[in-house]
Design a protein around this nucleic acid. Sequence first.
DNA 1: CATGGGTCCTGAGTGC
DNA 2: TGCACTCAGGACCCAT
Length: 276
Amino acid sequence: MPELPEVTTVSRRLDSLIAGRRVVSVDVVTPKLVKGVSPQILANRLEGLVFKRVYNIGKFMVWEFEDTPLLLLSHMRMDGRYHLATRPEPDSYIANTRLIFELEDGGRLTYIDTRGFGTFELREGESELLATPPISLLAKTPDAISPPEFLARLARSKRPIKTLLLDQQCILGLGNIYADETLFAAKFLPNRPASSLSRGEVLAILGEAARILKEACELGGSSVHSFYVLNEEIGGYQGRLKVYARNNKPCLTCGKLIKKIRLGGRGTHLCLTCQR
DNA sequence: CATGGGTCCTGAGTGC
DNA sequence: TGCACTCAGGACCCAT
C-alpha cells in the first residue's frame, strides 16, 4: 500500500510519538512476518529496549533504540498500518493485528496488515543495514538520483517505462499510484519502451517524479483505499490525484475519459490524449 | 543479466 | 441473498 510519501509520513509520526518510550514486550501474532530469525528471538531482543528514532529508506522503515546498535527493519507492503493507543481497553482487538509492542507507560503500538505481507527483521548495526539486501540494492530517490546512471539504465531496457519506475533498484520511492501520476504529469504513455525515451524526456520524468513525491510528502501522502497514516488520519494528497483511481472519469486537462489498462500485472491509469 | 509470471493473503466490489 | 470471480498502494522467487 504505502509508497514513499506514506512511509515517510508514518515514520515521522511514529518517531515523534514513541521516541524515549520503553518496550516491555513484543507479541508476534503472525510469526511468518518475521524474517531471518525466529519470532521468539526477535521479540526477546527487542524487549526492554527504548525507542530512539524511526526513519525510512525508501519504503522500508528503520527503528533505532537507545544504547544498542541493534536495528529493526520493517516493511508495510500493501496493507500495513500502525495504531498507537494510550490506554488500550482489554477487549480492543483490531482485526488483522500482526504484531504488538506493549510499552512501559501502558501504551500499545499495534501493527495491522490485512493480507499479512509486511515484514520485520533485525540488523546488528547501521553498517550491516546498508551493506546487506534489501537496503544495499536500493536506488536513490528521484531528487537524489544520478541522471547519467538512470539514463543508462533506461537505455538498455525495452520494458515499459512504468515497469522501471516501479523497480526500487532502478529508482526509489514510486509505487503504483505515483508511477501513474508521474507519467501523466510528464505526458508519456506507461507502455513506452524505456529505451525509446530521449535524454530530455527522461529528465522530465525525473523532475515530475521528484516534484510529486515532494508534494505528497508535504501533504502527508495519499489515501485511496484503506490507507491510514496513524490512528486513522487521512493523507492530504488524495485530492491531487489526476489519473489514479479515476477510471472512466474525465481527464482534468482535456476532458476525455481516463482509461485503465493492465501493465506488467498492475492496474494502470492514463489519458490517451494527453500522454504520448 | 534481463524478463515475465507466480506467489504470499484477506476483504471489498461486481455481476449473475 | 448467495456465490464465483476479480482486484488491491509491494517485493521476492524462480524459470527461461
